[in-house]
Amino acid sequence: MELFKELFESYGADYETTMSRFAGNEKFYLRVLGMLPNDKSMENLGRTIKNGDMAGAFEAAHTLKGVAGNLGLTPLFEAVCAIVEPLRKKTARDDYMQLYRVIQGEYERAGAFLESLKDV
């Protein structure tokens, strides 16, 4: 449990708050976190931004924001928040792809976090 908590906090997440959502059950948390790679929101976000589909991009980003928030993936959550509001407001911007790349990096970090927890 202690190593799990250390890995969690070194990733940049709030262990106590997140684990309270999972009734303190680390195995259950790990099982749910393990579903992240199967979620299509990240893929959909990239595709919709490339295609200029801002409504679709908002939907994908908003879903990813909820997933990241519920899983306590704070760095990913914060990266997604930077794109959700401009998309919600339909703000014309030239940097959506750059914001997506930041999200991609945090998504990869979340994947590495998942892998590190599997070893505990």
Rank of each mutant, 00 (worst) to 15 (best):
E2D: 15
L3A: 14
K5A: 09
S10F: 10
T17D: 09
T18M: 07
M19Q: 03
R21L: 02
F22S: 00
F22T: 00
A23Q: 14
L30R: 02
L30H: 00
R31G: 08
R31S: 11
V32C: 02
V32H: 04
M35T: 14
P37T: 12
N38P: 12
K40N: 11
N44H: 14
R47M: 14
R47L: 14
R47A: 14
T48R: 06
K50M: 06
K50P: 12
N51Y: 09
G52M: 11
D53Q: 12
M54W: 05
A55V: 14
A55E: 15
A57H: 04
F58P: 01
E59H: 10
E59W: 06
E59I: 02
E59T: 03
T63C: 05
L64S: 03
K65M: 04
G66C: 04
V67E: 00
A68G: 05
A68K: 00
N70T: 01
L71M: 04
T74H: 06
E78G: 02
A79W: 03
A79N: 04
A79M: 07
C81D: 07
C81H: 10
I83K: 01
V84E: 01
E85H: 12
E85L: 13
P86Y: 09
K90R: 15
M97P: 09
Q98E: 15
L99T: 09
Y100M: 02
V102E: 09
Q104V: 12
E106S: 05
E106P: 15
E106F: 04
Y107K: 00
E108R: 14
G111T: 10
G111I: 13
A112M: 11
A112T: 09
F113L: 10
L114C: 07
L114Y: 13
S116R: 12
L117Q: 10
K118E: 11
K118S: 06
D119Q: 15
D119H: 13
V120D: 09
V120G: 07
